[in-house]
Design a protein around this nucleic acid. Structure first.
Length: 426
RNA sequence: GCGGCUGUAGCUCAGCAGGUUAGAGUGCCAGGUUGUGGCCCUGGAGGCCGUGGGUUCAAGUCCCAUCAGCCGCCCCA
């Protein structure tokens, strides 16, 4: 877990609220362009929801959930994953309106009780989308295209898109049987982890990074050649769409995601900028999930992208982001107690006019106030000295250039500042 | 869940084989300019040395535990 601060920390500069806001702003805009609308769900859900949807044998459910019992003896779990809560809300609120699609996006914190490490946090944020109700491979393509657009606009060009199909309940059992038959003969060559997977979750044997496992599974049956006709066609069409959209990808026979609900399309974005935690986002199709959660048979596709990992990649790339300008326009300086009342009233007036303004509350010297105004990056120092006040005027000095200080009647101050805003749209 | 490393001022780090008042850079505050920023100079404040136990005449320094972080595995975002 980590704090995100208004000033970038010297080591992890990505823990900087303006960068988070910039990322979120881009994500929201890309979602708007693609017709996705925001949904917010609670941080906690009934434990059941995750256990049933994600799958009891997965790492997420078997060892990584933040689970506790509430006062009503119900077992609750902090949001362990993004899709299940969206599906739950979709069903509970009747967002399914017969025959049409529902396209949703979220920006949400996710909780996993695992060993912390750089790029892997017990609390992290994901931006994600879910397209519900569309079975066409064109929807898969749109979901992937949205992710690509988002990463591109962020400035993360250096990512690889890995793609695979994990089949469906019709064709997967045939493949599993073939895989088990193949692996059984080579169990002795494989790691302990993979022997465990052989029993519990055989598909996951494929993406082991252990070199021995790699060698042992050399020549193992490939999932994609066992796809049924429908899954095969779906994958072929998806690839054609991606080609049309100019989205490059690499096929990865061994890409199998860690959540049980995926069917057909599975994909991941990986960055060479990160270390062991190199996946910045991933997703896929989950055609059986909604029905399994008690809804009508409804297909779905989506992805989740890790905010921390994106920002870390941007840091490594030393990419510049369009950050909001947080500098005040005006800093009102009052030389003494006698003028500080006027200063307080003055900043209020400026703010009412939409001009960001600050003043000193510590009774410090003019010099100190000027320093602070400069440090904050204020455009104007507005000096309310007794000499000026006697003439109903204020001295104004532009701190962002070396223009000379000038005196303006207080009655004209707001319009003067508005007329001289930087970046003013003419 | 497994293995390894780290934890000293707000921040980045020094601190030699345990030995007097724990340092630097930067940031912060003030003065040099009796009402004026940026640069420069001078001074100042700021540290239960992660936490709890232990060894020792003496512990930031050694040992144990614990928490947090980092690296690898596992897994994922």
């Amino acid at each position: 877990m980590h704090d995100v601060l208004p000033v970038p920390p010297s080591v992890d500069a990505w823990l900087h609220t303006p960068r988070w806001r910039a990322l979120e702003r881009i994500f929201r805009d890309v979602c708007r362009l693609h017709g996705y609308r925001e949904i917010r769900t609670p941080v906690m859900e009934s434990t059941d929801l995750f256990a049933r949807s994600v799958g009891a044998g997965t790492d997420i459910v078997s060892k990584e959930m933040f689970t506790f019992t509430d006062r009503g003896e119900r077992s609750m779990t902090l949001r362990a994953e993004g899709t299940a809560p969206v599906v739950r809300a979709f069903l509970e609120n009747g967002l399914a309106s017969g025959g049409s699609m529902t396209k949703l996006y979220y920006i949400a914190t996710i909780y996993r009780y695992e060993h912390g490490q750089r790029g892997r946090y017990r609390e992290h944020q994901q931006t994600g989308i879910e397209a519900l109700g569309g079975a066409s491979p064109a929807v898969d393509a749109e979901v992937i295209a949205l992710a690509v657009a988002f990463l591109t606009r962020l400035g993360i060009a250096d990512v690889a898109l890995r793609l695979n199909s994990v089949g469906c309940p019709t064709c997967r059992p045939g493949y599993l049987a073939a895989l088990l038959a193949f692996a059984e003969k080579r169990l002795g060559l494989m790691s302990r982890d993979n022997r465990r997977r052989f029993e519990e979750n055989p598909l996951r044997m494929l993406d082991s990074k252990d070199p021995d496992d790699h060698a042992a599974l050399e020549g193992a049956p490939v999932l994609r050649s066992y796809l049924c006709a429908e899954c095969g066609d779906h994958f072929t069409e998806l690839r054609a769409h991606l080609d049309d959209l100019g989205i490059a990808y690499e096929l990865d026979d061994r890409l199998v995601r860690g959540l049980d609900y995926y069917t057909r399309t599975a994909f991941e974005f990986v960055s060479p900028q990160l270390g062991a935690q190199d996946v910045i986002g991933g997703g896929g199709r989950y055609d059986g999930l909604i029905e399994q959660c008690g809804g009508p048979p409804t297909p779905g596709v989506g992805f989740g992208i890790g905010t921390e990992r994106c920002l870390m990649v941007l840091d490594r790339l030393e990419a510049s982001m369009m950050l909001e300008d947080e500098r005040p326009i005006a800093y009102v300086i009052s030389p003494g107690a006698a003028t500080s009342r006027r200063a307080v009233a003055m900043v209020a007036e400026l703010r009412r006019a939409g001009i960001s303004a600050e003043t000193d509350y510590l009774g410090r010297s003019i010099k100190a106030q000027m320093r602070t105004a400069n440090k904050l990056g204020a455009q104007w120092a507005v000096i309310l000295g007794e000499v000026e006040l006697a003439r109903n005027a204020a001295a104004v000095k532009n701190l962002r250039n070396s223009d000379e200080q000038r005196e303006i009647p207080i009655s004209g101050l707001v319009s003067f500042i508005l007329d001289h805003l930087h970046n003013r749209v003419e």
